[in-house]
Computed example of a mutant assay.
Amino acid sequence: MSPSFETYLHPTLSNCSITTNPHNMDITAIHQFLTHSTWAAGISRETVQLSITNSLCFGLFKDDKQIGFARLVTDYATFGYLCDVYIVEEWRNHKLSRWLVECCQQHPVTQRLRRIMLVTSTASWLYEKVGYRPVKQENFVWQIVRPDIYKQ
């Protein structure tokens, strides 16, 4: 099922909006940020494009410039994995991270999911404010890590 496109307007910052329309995403800006991030260093532009095509994405814009992003990997029915959440440096400390995550949670697709997970090593304080809790159950979350996948 393909979701409808949603647009959210910031309640106080003029010309600040979030859209889920994939055609509005600035692939170059997203790739530039992600390739220098701690979690996706070296990721190819093609991989970023493919991940956006196959996910529910939230682009945060000030005027026409993309200043933030979040991606929900989902089956659109029961499960979602929130990832690639960021705000560019010059727009941090304006409470935009929280607004971005809250908009992700308000989307109609997200509202019907039974479980939404994320992985963070730097922003647990943010996610706790909007209802996320750490998984503290032994042998519950498992992973396969291939750290050199982008170094080809």
Rank of each mutant, 00 (worst) to 15 (best):
D26L: 06
N139E: 04
C103I: 05
P22I: 09
T120I: 08
I144V: 14
E102R: 09
A70V: 03
H94A: 02
N21L: 07
R112M: 09
N54A: 03
Y86W: 05
P3H: 07
L113K: 01
T38V: 09
S37C: 12
Q105T: 03
S44E: 08
I144G: 00
P134I: 04
T35W: 00
R133Q: 15
F140R: 11
G59P: 04
R114W: 00
I27S: 10
H23A: 14
Q105I: 10
N24Y: 03
G68E: 01
E89T: 15
S2P: 00
T38P: 00
T74P: 12
N139K: 06
L50A: 14
I144S: 10
T28L: 12
A41D: 12
V109H: 10
T35N: 06
S55M: 07
D64M: 01
R146T: 12
M117V: 08
H94L: 14
R71E: 12
S2T: 11
G42D: 08
T110Y: 12
I67F: 02
I144D: 00
Q137R: 05
R133V: 11
R112K: 14
L13I: 06
A40H: 14
C104H: 05
F140I: 01
R115A: 06
P108N: 03
V145T: 13
L126N: 05
S121R: 15
A41G: 06
P147S: 07
Y86C: 15
V109C: 12
F5A: 10
Y127S: 04
V141T: 09
S97I: 06
F5D: 09
T12N: 06
T38C: 03
Q32F: 12
I116M: 12
C103L: 07
L100T: 09
A29K: 02
E128M: 02
L60M: 11
V88Q: 15
I149V: 11
D84H: 05
L34E: 11
F5C: 07
Y86K: 13
Q66H: 01
A29W: 02
N93M: 07
P134Q: 02
V135P: 00
M25C: 11
V135A: 01
T122I: 04
N139V: 01
S124R: 04
L126I: 00
D75A: 08
W99D: 02
Y127F: 09
S2Q: 12
R112Q: 10
G131I: 05
V88T: 15
V141W: 01
L118P: 02
S97V: 01
F58L: 11
Y76N: 13
R92F: 14
S4H: 05
T7F: 09
C104Y: 08
C104T: 12
L96P: 07
T20C: 10
K129A: 05
Y76H: 14
N24R: 12
A77S: 15
F33L: 14
C57E: 06
V101F: 01
G68A: 04
V135N: 00
A123T: 10
Y76C: 13
E90V: 14
N24H: 04
C104A: 11
T38M: 10
D64T: 11
L72N: 07
F140G: 03
P11F: 06
M1P: 05
P108A: 02
V88W: 00
D148M: 05
H10I: 04
T12E: 11
T122L: 08
T53L: 10
I144W: 13
F69C: 13
G80A: 10
T47S: 13
G80R: 08
P108E: 02
S121K: 15
